[in-house]
Write a protein that binds this DNA or RNA. Structure first.
Lengths: 255, 255
DNA sequence: CCCCGATCTTGACCTAGATCAAGAGCCTGA
DNA sequence: TCAGGCTCTTGATCTAGGTCAAGATCGGGG
């Protein structure tokens, strides 16, 4: 019996036990999560971490295009991205899709639902992505006993507010070129935070999604990328991006 | 005497109260604050309210133009508006002022500072305004013992996030007319929430401030107001606004 | 009371980016 | 393997709203 066949059978077996497989393959814990320091930069004691551990759920990775939650879904949890990436978006009733954010490993999404008890945006995986589910009720109870945790959560929400304000300023006055530059610089610095190459990476979102985030049209996004490529500020090959002159990009971003 | 007239008189009475209270009664306590149910819609027990009371500080009203806090100030408190109105804004380093929000009685501002421990926007009174200062450390300690309070705070932050997302969608795709309509509808419904006339009011912000909020120029704001006036959708007399056809406005706002 | 600077309005013109159109790579599933 | 539908690019044209300019109006200080 060849090894390939063994693997294929093993895969089938795991599939048939989807729930169990999620239990066996994604049950790493918070203490040894390589994002730990970034996702929860708290001086958590061991006992506290154990408690947090107890409530966090890890499930099967989402496939590209799959939704984590939908607008109007009841709010039950916030989600920490473990790997891959997602977008959050709202659909205006004329059908325009407004992307409100992209989320990468270590970032948390779903806060929009706390206020109204249902989500006001949808979240969709841009590529295979795994997330930790943090049931909110349990989290709230837990944070009653752990001041660190409570403060941290608020810091995360506050940071989201601050980032939104950045985006608002961008959409309000910046030119198409400034928007694209700021966007790329943002992606780059988030990559850096993950200790991945900050100059060379693959876009997980389409030009359309970028345009719906930056308040531009696909054509404009495409044109600007072409221009930056011609100017040798970027190397653009389909979704592969290499930033050649970050200083220039930062300059035009002007933020 | 028609009912409309009665309502309008009641509204005028309440308005006059608001002015008086800002001038003379700013040291009332939470239990008898007429905004109580709106600002803190919690099922707070008496004892809890007393505790909250203990940490909230009420100071002299701010005069028009005075700042509540500045960008880069150390974050120490969040603020509940008692009367009057304020704007929050950031200044890009090319000098453009981006207004990120207007705040009216019962609304809370200052959340942007929690994440970084210093404010990332400035807050300035648009007219005489009184606020309650809620020192954040004390508030956090208090909310450790009061789950209601903690959840409420997060709801307020979450709501701010949701509102920001609305603004983002607006700035991203809406026409100048849609932006103005949405803005006016927003003001109107907030007035309604305060039990003041939702159709007739005075703008506390200048055209310039509106334009810096909506991502337009003063000229455009002015032109659109003139147009809406000519079309008899609004009555505009300097800063006095009367909404004549709210349905039309809502229609064009499309939200 | 008038004066001065800020705010607001209106008109004429211009431009960044939208829209329309067409074609070239692509994945994907039959 | 190919067909059909995406995504992406590039060009030609159009237009909403920005920019510039000139007054009008308002409000606060002397």
């Amino acid at each position: 019996m060849g090894e390939a066949q063994v693997n294929s059978q093993a895969a089938k077996f795991l599939e048939s036990l989807a729930v169990e497989s999620s239990a066996t393959r994604f049950n790493d814990n918070c203490s040894n999560c390589r994002l730990g320091a970034f996702c929860l930069p708290l001086a958590l004691r061991h006992r506290e971490l154990d408690e947090l551990e107890r409530i966090v759920q890890r499930s099967q990775p989402l496939q590209r295009g799959q939704h984590l939650f939908w607008e109007r879904d009841e709010f039950q949890a916030v989600y920490a991205v473990r790997s891959g990436s997602l977008k959050a978006y709202q659909t205006s009733h004329e059908g325009h899709e407004q992307v409100t954010g992209f989320y990468f490993p270590g970032e948390i999404l779903g806060f929009d639902g706390i206020g109204t008890n249902f989500h006001v945006s949808s979240a969709q995986a841009l590529e295979t992505a795994s997330v930790c589910t943090i049931p909110f009720d349990a989290f709230e109870d837990l944070s009653q006993e752990m001041p660190h945790l409570q403060r941290h959560l608020m810091q995360l929400m506050s940071r989201e507010i601050a980032e939104d304000h950045q985006l608002i300023a961008l959409l309000s006055k910046a030119t198409a070129e400034q928007r694209m530059s700021a966007f790329l610089i943002g992606l780059s610095s988030r990559r850096g935070r993950e200790n991945l190459s900050a100059t060379k990476f693959r876009l997980s979102m389409s030009r359309i999604e970028i345009s719906n985030y930056l308040g531009l049209t696909v054509e404009t996004v495409s044109r600007i990328l072409s221009r930056l490529h011609k100017q040798k500020i970027l190397k653009v090959d389909k979704r592969e991006i290499e930033i050649l002159q970050k200083d220039v990009l930062k300059e035009t971003a002007g933020f």
